[in-house]
Amino acid sequence: MKVSMKINGVEYERDVEPRRLLVHYIREDVGLTGTNVGCDTSSCGACTVLMDGKSVKSCTVLAVQAEGAEITTIEGLAEPDGTLHPLQRAFQECHGLQCGYCTPGMVMASLSLIKENPGLDERKVREGLEGNLCRCTGYHNIVKAVLQAADEMGVKA
């Protein structure tokens, strides 16, 4: 069936089976492969995107459920000229990524977290990222990056 949604500001319409997962719609039908798949049990958060401004695990949403939604993926964060979003920059400056596989999901989850929670502190960041797994960084620098970005984006305590 026809499913249309806005991804990173661009309107897409694709004809897909109802069983198409949002993550596959984004990656395969639209061709934005920045969003990753790391598990099959909704546990890892690698597939996190923003749906109408809020983080969701796109492996656990059917594409048909996202009809008419506004989706933001990792590709939609940087400026058109390539300037990184403050959160992306913070991840680089704090060495919050190694292999980078968890990173798109981690960044999108962090963005949602920062927007929804003024007054983040270390504890809140750690708990707020409970649904995102990273096997490389040990999280130390991810937490640092999120706090730094929250500060810069003007929403820290």
Binding site: S55, K57, T60, S112, G128
Partner: peptide, 9 residues
């Protein structure tokens, strides 16, 4: 419940 992403949905 779950994690923020789960709670959003």
């Amino acid at each position: 419940v779950g994690d923020p992403q789960v709670r959003h949905r």
